[in-house]
Amino acid sequence: MATAEESERQIHKPEGTRRPQPRAGRATLPYLYVAPAFILLAVLVFYPLILSLYFSLHVDNLLLPGEHFFVGLANYAAVLHDPAFLQAAGNTVEYFFIASLGVLLLGLPMAFWFHAIRRGRGFFLALLMLPWAIPGTVTGLLWSFIYNPVSGLLNAMLRTFNLIPHYIVWLNGSASSRLFVGVSLLWQVLPLTVIIFLAGLESIPANLYEAAAVDGCTGWQAVRRITIPLLRPALAIGLVEAGVLGIGVFDQIYVLTGYAPATKSAVIQTYLYAFQNLNFGQGISAAMFVTVVTLLVSVFYLRVVYREVSY
């Protein structure tokens, strides 16, 4: 086994180009430094992940004590044939699209606005980050006060301007409830994506626009030919964040509509499997399924939208 010193010599680069180089030290020292962090993750992430795989292939139900046997993919099949899960998964697809579209249609213009503003930037950036920092359950509460059919702000405002004939029960268990729940989700998702887009915008060198202007390319054309292509990495990362948060939504829904079928998300259904039905096998299978979909979506965005850019 190579010691730290030996590997240091092997990768030695000429002066000038060198990154911070490894120092001479006992070969075990770096392992000692990394070990505590690694052990924590091994116990609380890697081991449970392996257990997940194991349990998802076994019957494990607190209501059937003593019953524990291998069932292959039966848990997955049961979950994928369960109308409750399919409903929750369908809802979640909608949340995913609300978050993704919202980020593009609202987040992108907001990022352009922040890019252009000169005065009051610090104040507005702090205001922007407020919804990100507020806990999800509190976000749910805040929006419940807006949607409340009797004392809510939304009915009051629309009624004052005579835009609705009578008070409306917004979270009424119909398909439109998902849109209103989705808005509260978007409220929390937007800040992070806006600052990712903003960082992307600010990394585009100004002289590109100057050169384009000399060639007669300005305004919308410059946005389409320069900004959007160069913004692709930021767009990809922002969409990944929105997708991950949209698919994983739990807190706001728990507060706004609880376990109601029309609005529950896939993660809510996972929670129900495990902690209400006490069927850990199905709960784990559902969770694994959602996790895999999340990872696939992330990979898709990063491969299709992300393009390494050089100036």
């Binding site: 609380l44 992430v45 997940s52 991950v244 495990a274 784990i284 969770a287 990872l295």
Partner: peptide, 21 residues
């Protein structure tokens, strides 16, 4: 990579086995 890779892992992925542990 192992450590930073867990960044992309949502907490619900391991919630139930963690509960059992």
């Amino acid at each position: 990579l192992l450590i930073v890779g867990t960044l992309s892992l949502p907490v619900y992925a391991v919630l139930i086995p963690l509960f059992q542990l």
